[in-house]
Amino acid sequence: MKVRATSEDRLTQIVLIGLALTFLAFFLLLPLVAVFSEALGQGLGMFLEAVQTPDALAAIRLTLIIAAISVPLNVVFGIAASWAITKFQFPGKSLLITLIDLPFSVSPVVSGLIFVLLFGANGFVGPWLAEHDLKIIFAVPGIVLATVFITFPFVARELIPLMMEQGKDDEEAALSLGASGWQTFWHVTLPNIRWGLLYGVLLCNARAMGEFGAVSVVSGHIRGETNTMPLHVEILYNEYDFVGAFAVASLLALLALVTLVAKSVLEWRFDLHSGASH
């Protein structure tokens, strides 16, 4: 069903689609193709071999663990922050939003450095940690912290504009009908924001798995132990194992693409079901 007045004519549409696709082809598709063509350049056998080495498997495992810890943390934070920011008026709101954005504007080099300055052997709490035999830097906790820092704004940033646009009428209606705060959140807010939330989670997850700069500083690069996939890619590349490097890299890209396509399918099926009621 098309309403003529609020849609461009087909020619304009095709031109715009063409323009967008050309742009994406040059800036996104070609680099991706380059990665896959390098990875598969020596045949599928080499590719499979490269991603099945013990070091690669250890890196994949570590990356998944890191993402599994950091993403939920940021989801909880993101929901709390966007609720506070969009449902209430208080002074200093712009400042708060900016502070949440801050990790985006911190160079990855610096985001690693701050945790070294804090927890390193010569850092502010480093000596205390050493005394109690606690390891943060050059171990899993340090990598998790750096990852949480890097992905800090993703969920909140996805939800804030969306919830602002939606306003709070729905919630107020539910509350006035006698629903409790939690009920309102579960039955009104969450369904309203679920796609935005899902976007946020997927982006946060993708970035958590792909982060290189900050993690590189706090990892210590111990093979099979503290190397995440992106770090493993760099190491392989530096060993002139280009096939291996691009194989692991394409695996990361593939992981992201699969989750995103899965999301699209979910969305599509949901639309189909709810479409009947409209």
Binding site: V116, A121, F138, G220, H221, I222, R223, E225
Partner: peptide, 20 residues
Amino acid sequence: FRMSHGGSGKQSRAIIDGLD
């Protein structure tokens, strides 16, 4: 063995900062 490889200066800093 636990092996760690990286740029020489970066590795030195990691040891200074507590890489064991």
